[in-house]
Design a protein around this nucleic acid. Sequence first.
DNA 1: CTGTATCCTGATCGATACTG
DNA 2: CAGTATCGATCAGGATACAG
Lengths: 118, 118
Amino acid sequence: MERKPDNCRVEDALGILVGKWKPVILLYLLQEGTKRFSELKRNMPGITQKMLTKQLRELEDEDIIARVVYPQVPPKVEYSMTEYGRSLEPILEAMHEWGAKHTEHKMEKQQNQLKSSS
Amino acid sequence: MERKPDNCRVEDALGILVGKWKPVILLYLLQEGTKRFSELKRNMPGITQKMLTKQLRELEDEDIIARVVYPQVPPKVEYSMTEYGRSLEPILEAMHEWGAKHTEHKMEKQQNQLKSSS
DNA sequence: CTGTATCCTGATCGATACTG
DNA sequence: CAGTATCGATCAGGATACAG
């Protein structure tokens, strides 16, 4: 598998993860399994319906999540990871771990700067 | 290490990788080692000086890459991955692999849609 | 050679209101 | 309940010109 700049496929993976709420949505569905629209919304404080809908549609278009509509009143729609979407889990986990370490790293750096300037 | 939505650190890692040229820059430095500004520019067809400078500064601010200035005329500036930056390599590799498989996946999907519509 | 400084455009995000 | 429509703000990205 080539990794040269002129054949870089990192962007393709990145494109799917990028979006202010996508990582949270994915991690949540991975952990909790199938969820309704309203449950997702309740769990992401601050997200608007428009945004949630948009992010879900984009993930659905990439086959990362599945959307099941129950034809009833009131409507019920459930979202869940696809088999394929689950292949992203190791990457998400790795990024979470790395991200956690990185915030530590940055805090240490700040501490050192404070020390040297005092 | 908690991965709950309210403690999601994926964004922190994502923030560093996001930027139109960052993945390419990182992969390039990872493979080729230390490079000059002009070499980087030559290797990223289409990037402007402003953009290259900006992306490099952002990566430098996060301690992912190191910037060494040689005080001479004409100026010479070298960029390289830091020890710390190298810890991103597995993630970058994983995303590249996944991205490559994903473009395959999308092509298969398109094929199937063509078949079923004919 | 290695940058900064301006200005501009399009995409993304968000607040709000409305609907089957 | 689960959306869609509209409008405005913000921001990343890019073209271009200039500078140490």
